[in-house]
């Protein structure tokens, strides 16, 4: 092939490549295309639930503990209400459990610590790609649900948090999981991290641990658990703060 032809084809290929890439970026910004891409999510969710419905996340020996457990996302909610709670060592803290329950609850930290608990050394996998290993101890969510008595039509637990995600102090973090995850043996509301009370940087006084999903599901600074049939009416309607920002609700991948 002549040099001229070669140069022409190299340039044509380069231009075509650039056009395709620009096309991909344009598609990403449409309303419809991400919906097409996300047809994979319910497929992944149902396969995960079918092949490993109640499988246990790996637990590690003490020797595997990370030297320190990284704080990511909010490291201090900083609102007046939260600062007041923290200054009082969370003595006035109440975890509200309401929504589709027969028996709404308002639990103090002492109440939560008195519930059946579980301690586990697990690996935290962030959606960004990093992992860290820590020891968590907390109340089993199944015990809290048993006390609250979910109504027959309840399908999800929504976790409302104390940390605002917008600069102006609005848009509180929230997350949701289904009942299969809520009743899973390793699903706990953790109050201890590495055998010390959960630090503010990691979600004091309570954070969710749902061990077969990514870090953004592990909601920190829990204030209220709301049982719902659907989360379509809550915030952006996608079941969580990051879900409202385009992340998958099923965070098992």
């Amino acid at each position: 092939m002549s040099t001229q032809r070669r140069r022409f084809f190299a340039r044509a290929l380069g231009t075509a490549g650039a056009l395709v890439l620009a096309g991909c970026d344009k598609l990403s910004r449409t309303d419809w295309f991400p919906k097409v891409l996300n047809v994979a999510e319910p497929v992944n969710n149902s396969i995960a639930k079918t092949v490993a419905r109640m499988a246990m996340a790996e637990e590690f020996p003490e020797s595997a503990l990370s030297p320190s457990f990284r704080s990511n996302g909010t490291s201090d909610p900083g609102t007046d209400a939260y600062v007041a709670l923290a200054q009082g060592q969370f003595a006035t803290y109440k975890l509200v459990v309401d929504g589709l329950v027969e028996n709404p609850l308002a639990l103090t930290l002492a109440d939560v610590r008195a519930l059946p608990s579980r301690e586990q050394i697990t690996r935290h996998d962030c959606v960004e790609g990093w992992s860290a290993i820590a020891r968590w101890k907390g109340a089993r969510l199944s015990a809290i649900l048993a006390a609250a008595k979910p109504k027959a039509n309840a399908r999800y637990v929504v976790f409302h948090c104390a940390d605002p995600m917008n600069e102006d102090g609005t848009g509180f973090y929230y997350e949701s999981i289904d009942f299969e995850d809520a009743y899973h043996e390793q699903t706990i509301l953790a109050y201890d991290l590495n055998r010390a009370p959960l630090p503010i940087a990691n979600g004091a006084p309570l954070r969710l641990r749902v061990e077969r999903q990514l870090g953004y599901k592990q909601a920190k600074y829990l204030l209220r658990l709301e049982l719902v049939e659907s989360f379509a009416h809550i915030e952006g309607g996608n079941g969580g703060y990051w879900e409202d920002n385009g992340y998958q609700w099923f965070a098992g991948i």
């Binding site: 990403s28 891409l37 047809v39 994979a40 497929v43 992944n44 992340y247």
Partner: peptide
Amino acid sequence: IPDGNWLAMARSWHFFFAW
């Protein structure tokens, strides 16, 4: 893909084309 840092969208592309 996408050109800028956009993890959520990159994951959507990745998991669709993984299938």
